[in-house]
């Protein structure tokens, strides 16, 4: 996946049954971001696989002042990449992970 300079990881173990995930995002390579942002800060948030979209969460992060508008695409992409990976992992291990 193209590196956005952002890192998204599960904030807690994925029990594979809950559609709501706890994710954590932080800036790994500040040079790759265009706008101002806070270094060394991780943002933990919940993401519902059925109702949420990466773009929506990225928009909310911009609105909350975590990132500049110009970086919302990178934020959405990094969330999307991680969520896609989690969905694939869940498909491989359907029975309670």
């Amino acid at each position: 996946a193209e590196d956005t300079g952002l890192r998204v990881e599960l904030a807690e173990d994925d029990d594979c049954s809950n559609s709501s995930l706890g994710l954590r995002l932080w800036v790994e390579d500040p040079k790759k971001l265009k706008g101002k942002h806070k270094d060394n800060e991780a943002i933990e948030f919940s993401f519902n696989l059925e109702t949420d979209t990466p773009e929506e969460v990225a928009y909310e992060m911009v609105k909350s002042g975590f990132f500049h508008e110009s970086d919302s695409k990178a934020v959405a992409k990094s969330i999307r990449d991680r969520v896609t990976l989690i969905k694939k992992t869940r498909e491989k291990k359907p029975a309670g992970c």
């Binding site: 790994e28 991780a42 943002i43 933990e44 948030f45 919940s46 909310e60 992060m61 609105k63 975590f66």
Partner: peptide, 27 residues
């Protein structure tokens, strides 16, 4: 943890906490 801030936006809760130095260098 006093460094943790909770930000609410459109119903979603964001918890902000410091990234441990080791995580920054390791990734």
């Amino acid at each position: 943890n006093s460094l943790t801030q909770v930000v609410h936006s459109a119903g979603r809760r964001f918890i902000v906490s410091p990234v441990p130095e080791s995580r920054l260098r390791e990734s």
